[in-house]
Amino acid sequence: MRAGPLFGALATSLRRNLGMTCAVVVTVAICLALLGAGLLLRAQARTVDRFLLDQIEVVVDLQDGLPEADREALRDELAADPLVTKVSYESKQQVYERFRRDFRGSPDVVAGVSADDLPASFRLALADPRDAEEIVYTYTGRDGVEAVRDQRALLGPLYRFLDGFTLGAFALAAIQAVASFVLIYTMIRISAHARRRETAIMRLVGATNAAIRAPFVLESALAGLVGGLLAVGTLVLAKVYLVDGRFAHQTMFPLFGWGAVWAAAVAVLAVGVTAAAGMASVALRRHLRV
């Protein structure tokens, strides 16, 4: 079918079926916004990961008053360990400065701590961050070692938080996807019923199945597209007001950038249009005899 008559049929169908189409748009928008939120949370987890991989992974806190000779012996031993690629010493003062930098967002915490309260330490870069556990096991309890900390392990709760919310967002998106399918199914049924005279005549005069189905699939895909655009709008607003506007002042971790938002937007639009069109095709098999 030519574009003119095709869009004519689409416009007629939309006009007759506006309420139902709006319901589909809203449901699809919520579904896709949740999907987009899940994608952004995953992007955030990856951003944190990348940030931490650049940092020294394992910190060996030294006991106060450790003689310099013992300290050097420990450094040599650490440097000789095949799992460790780099060892760097930080004095109490340097540790304090790092602490102040990391907690610049929380002046109260910084105010209650002085350089003396913090241990001098070795920071270790590992050939493979996943070996951190073995390093912790080997050096904990050694003479002069106060504690061995795996910074990634400290971030477990953060990762669990991000993973949990990602999973939750995807699960809700899946539930909304089911709801969207039910609505699209109903929309197609109503639409096919409203247009049954037209489709009967189309069959009769020899229109192809594709031509008969196209307006319905287009209607659904359009609802998917509009829902997707609304979802993208929500993601952009969340990035501007929630992430950049609030979280950026509250966390020491870097936050995902606009690149992640646009990647999620493209995914959300693509999924929205194709899934809505696909769901319509499935519903058409049931409700439109061609």
Binding site: R2, G4, P5, V205, A211
Partner: peptide, 29 residues
């Protein structure tokens, strides 16, 4: 095919009803 009940589309004009048969099989404008 022609039927007893005509089966015209009520929201299309006479010309629109006839053109419909050509439009939906993709005949050029």
């Amino acid at each position: 095919c022609v039927f007893q009940d005509f089966r015209l589309l009520p929201d299309r004009t006479v010309a629109g009803n006839v053109a419909f048969a050509l439009d939906v099989v993709g005949r050029p404008r």
